[in-house]
């Protein structure tokens, strides 16, 4: 209510005028009471005296109203040049200037307008409402799967394709080695230990090519053995691995031709078994 009164200028003006008139009347009354020879008769009720004093205080404190002639303002016309200069400034042009938008901005503006209109329909509102829930649920499932490190791709029967290309043995890239030529060269030089090693690497590569093992640098031969599916392949690979480890890790540089022939036969038998094995799904 107070705000309403304050905002109403006319009412405030009337109030001020009324107050001013009351104070003038009160001052006149006091001056009449204070004439010489006449004793001032104060009211008997203390609250009435206090009210009178309170009302009289502004009258004594306030200066006498100045005459209208003394406060009349003189009109000073503004400088025309200055006005023109100010009108020329951007800050004083109060027209709605449309910002210049690029084509990209216009595209997005249209897009959001279109989306807003679309979502403002009944169907759009429903889609928005349940789409948000679906997105939240999807995000939650994704986070859970990530935390549990679940390989979702295996659910669709597809093995992840990692490690194969990054794998190399002692700076030898299995993908680039011509095994037939390398083994033949080692055999020609009677370097049977190296030939056994190359033959074993060839077996590993062919196992990986068939998708039966995943080549990883940190895996041991046993790891690959455990990866093989049950059947005739594991026993064959076990024997091949045993011979390879005996020759390679056992540092059998003195491997005889007959011993090498035995390892070679083992390798060929394994490769035949492998060729008869179906590829991994």
């Amino acid at each position: 209510m107070a705000c309403i009164f304050i905002e109403n200028n006319r009412l405030v003006t009337y109030c001020l005028r009324f107050l001013y008139a009351s104070l003038s009347w009160l001052r006149t009354l006091l001056s009449h009471l204070e004439r010489p020879g006449r004793r001032l008769q104060l009211p008997r009720q203390p609250w009435l005296l206090a009210l009178l004093l309170l009302l009289a205080a502004p009258a004594f404190a306030a200066p006498a109203p100045a005459s209208q002639a003394a406060t009349r303002a003189t009109y000073r016309p503004p400088d025309t040049e200055r006005l023109r200069e100010l009108r020329g400034q951007r800050e004083f042009q109060y027209v709605d200037v449309r910002s210049e938008q690029s084509g990209w901005d216009l595209f997005w503006r249209r897009f959001w307008e279109w989306l807003g209109e679309l979502l403002n329909t009944r169907g759009g509102r429903l889609t928005w409402k349940y789409g948000i829930y679906a997105l939240l649920v999807g995000a939650l499932v994704f986070v859970v799967l990530k935390l549990l490190q679940v390989d979702v791709t295996r659910a669709f029967g597809r093995a992840p394709r990692t490690g194969l290309l990054a794998y190399d043995v002692a700076n030898e890239d299995l993908e680039t080695i011509n095994f037939d030529a390398a083994i033949a060269e080692a055999e020609r030089q009677e370097n049977y230990r190296v030939a056994v090693r190359l033959g074993y690497l060839l077996a590993l590569k062919q196992l990986a090519d068939k998708g039966l093992i995943r080549l990883q640098p940190e895996k041991t031969n046993h790891d690959y053995l455990y990866e093989l599916p049950e059947g005739t392949l594991p026993p064959a690979f076990r024997e091949l691995t045993r011979q390879f480890e005996f020759v390679w890790y056992g540092e059998h540089d003195d491997l005889t031709a007959s011993q090498y022939q035995q390892t070679r036969s083992t390798r060929l038998r394994f490769l035949q078994t492998l060729s008869a094995t179906r590829n991994a799904a």
Partner: peptide, 17 residues
Amino acid sequence: LPAPLEATGDAGSFAPR
């Protein structure tokens, strides 16, 4: 312990020295 690789073929040629 991982199972040791037992010889399935002719183990004589690959016996420990």
